[in-house]
Computed example of a mutant assay.
Amino acid sequence: MTTPQQPSAPSAEDFLMGGGVASAKFPTIGAAVSGRITERPVVEQQRDFTTGELKFWDDGKPMQQLVVTLATAERDPANPEDDGTRRLYVKGQMKNAVAQAVRTAGARGLEVGGVLSVTYARDGQKTNPRFNAPKNYEAQYTPAASAELNTPDPGTAPALPAANAGPAVPGLTAEQAAAAQANPATAALVQQIQQAQPSGQAAVAPGPASGGELPPF
């Protein structure tokens, strides 16, 4: 997994206003949090939820957790400034699930740009009547390189389907006509040929008699 690294101190704004990044929540079985990792994961010592005091194991060693910052699609309707950033505190059984997801992905650890998904899958065995049953999680991880390859380029327009290619172009299949229309070098010529075709006329291969050939596309 990642190399232990202590997190940076909170910003002055977070300290003053009590703000900061919202924590990922898993209120019910089936709840999931998924997003791209935006900051290098860091290791920090756990704190008691009620008192805020640092937590230690019985042998005096600090209880650690991995803090992962994700860009998610979640939004809090009550917070107009919510940009979907969530902090995932990886510890206990969740740590095992995330470690297994990293191994399954063939990665060495979590990295910026990777995509991590964690799901509250089921309840574990209740061992203490004073506490709720522990949550069991499942996780999936996609390394940064693979995530980048599987993300569509927002500047790439999808190709026109053959059904939308318009009137038939002499000597070209519907797929070839669609490709010609998508090429700026041939789109105007294709349009001229289509407009010159009388309705219902059979397609004839362009050649010297029909005024020339379409350039390659």
Rank of each mutant, 00 (worst) to 15 (best):
P152V: 09
N128V: 12
K95M: 07
D48H: 15
N79D: 15
G92H: 00
D82K: 06
Q46I: 03
L16Y: 07
L110H: 05
F56M: 10
Q125N: 02
L66Q: 13
D123C: 00
T127V: 10
E138C: 00
D83R: 14
Y89S: 06
Y137M: 08
D83H: 08
V42M: 01
L70A: 06
A99W: 10
F15Q: 10
E148H: 05
P134Y: 08
A32V: 03
Q45A: 14
G113T: 04
G18Y: 09
R75D: 04
S11W: 07
A9L: 10
D153S: 04
G60Q: 05
Q140A: 11
E74V: 05
K126A: 12
A121F: 01
V67D: 02
P80A: 09
S146Y: 05
I29C: 01
D14Q: 07
Y89N: 13
R40Q: 15
G113A: 04
M63K: 15
P41H: 02
Y141A: 04
N150W: 05
P7H: 01
V68R: 02
P41K: 11
R87G: 00
M63W: 00
P143V: 12
F56K: 08
A107F: 06
V43N: 15
Y120I: 00
L54M: 11
T38I: 15
P62D: 02
M94K: 04
L149C: 00
Q93T: 10
S34N: 08
L149A: 11
V33D: 00
Y141T: 09
K95F: 02
T104D: 06
D48G: 11
A107H: 06
E39G: 03
Y137V: 07
P41Q: 12
V98K: 04
W57N: 10
G19W: 08
V115W: 15
A24E: 11
A12V: 10
K25G: 00
L54R: 14
R108M: 05
A144E: 05
A78C: 00
R130Y: 07
T51S: 15
K95Q: 12
E44L: 11
T38E: 04
A121N: 10
A101C: 03
R130E: 15
K135R: 13
F15E: 08
P27N: 03
A144W: 05
E81L: 08
S8A: 15
R75A: 05
V21F: 03
A12E: 07
D153G: 01
G113Y: 13
V98N: 07
P41G: 12
R130V: 06
T72K: 02
Y89V: 12
V67F: 08
N132E: 13
T72S: 06
F26Y: 09
T104S: 03
R87K: 12
Q65N: 09
Y120K: 10
